[in-house]
Simulated assay, not measured.
Amino acid sequence: MSQERRPAAAESSPAEKQLSSKEIMTAWEGKTPIQILQEYGTKIGKTPLYVMEKAEGQAHLPSFIFSVAVGEIKCTGHGHSKKAAKHKAAEAALNVLKGESCDRLAFPKIDDPDAPKDPQNQPNPIGILQELAVQRGWRLPEYSVAMEAGPPHKREFAVTCRIERFVETGNGSSKKIAKRAAAEVMFAKLQNLPETTDIPRLPKTNFRLESLRSSSEEKITMLKRNPLSIPNTDYVQMMSELSKEQGFEVTYIDIDELTVNGQYQCLAQLSTAPVTVCHGTGISCGNAHNDAAHSALQYVKFMAETK
């Protein structure tokens, strides 16, 4: 935690006088430093301005630094959550207003949900990943429910997380758990990349599957006319040819976990608008890819034929 003050030559206005210990302690009752500082700023006509200076650390131990400026005073605070960092910054500013160093007054401790001392409280990897994307200037993460299977009492979900061309998958017994797992895996993959890394970006596409209804090109016409039930068909190749003709991309994502029946799992993701994700299984990775491509082709065929 640090404190910054402008040169003495730039005097504060009479309204920006220092606060006495009595004034702070009286205002303190039942209030947080943020609330007290807000009331002080309202009185002098200068609302406190909070800015997040830095967000770093690993998913299980995030670290935030916030600065607060009110009048001629600027202080910073550090915490394992945004709320805690702002609390510390406001506390530091109140100490300056009292005319003491930034760590003299003892305010009640604020609840810090991301503090490492409480293992029961886990940080939110979805929010942390989003902040990382913003810091690096990348597009925000996109999540898609890729698979939902299993009996009612033992459901299985797979959710994909995509940032530019990076794709990771998370699994869980609910969509929420699977989404958090996907964000954790993605964050672990990206956090060690240098900030200057020029990652391959996913080209923006406005291609919508509905546009296939009026298309008369060769591959989509064949898909509309022919059934998708011919044995030993290479659906991966068929999908590759169709995607090249229509101008969208197909990415196959292997899921590490096997199904409850011991089969391999794969996702076929189409870079359409919105993104399309289809699930496939098989006795081998290749069979799972082919099954996922088959499911994707069935969906594309349905969209192309629907009036």
Results as ranks from 00 to 15, higher is better:
212 L>K: 08
101 S>K: 13
249 E>L: 15
302 F>T: 06
164 E>S: 03
168 E>T: 08
125 P>T: 01
260 V>R: 04
146 A>Q: 02
182 A>W: 12
169 T>W: 00
255 I>P: 00
253 I>K: 01
240 S>W: 06
189 K>A: 12
99 G>K: 04
246 Q>K: 03
168 E>C: 09
230 I>T: 13
250 V>Q: 06
249 E>Q: 15
13 S>M: 05
158 A>W: 08
74 K>M: 14
144 S>V: 06
193 L>I: 11
12 S>T: 14
140 L>R: 04
146 A>Y: 00
142 E>M: 10
7 P>M: 00
32 T>Q: 01
107 F>P: 05
78 H>K: 07
45 G>H: 06
201 R>T: 02
72 E>W: 06
157 F>T: 04
84 A>T: 13
135 Q>Y: 07
241 E>D: 02
95 N>H: 09
41 G>K: 04
258 L>H: 10
101 S>H: 15
235 Y>V: 06
72 E>D: 12
249 E>H: 08
77 G>Y: 09
118 D>A: 13
179 K>S: 01
143 Y>Q: 10
126 I>S: 10
273 A>Y: 05
63 S>E: 10
284 S>Q: 13
75 C>Q: 07
255 I>W: 00
143 Y>T: 06
33 P>F: 06
60 H>Y: 04
9 A>F: 07
82 K>I: 08
236 V>I: 07
210 E>W: 13
168 E>K: 12
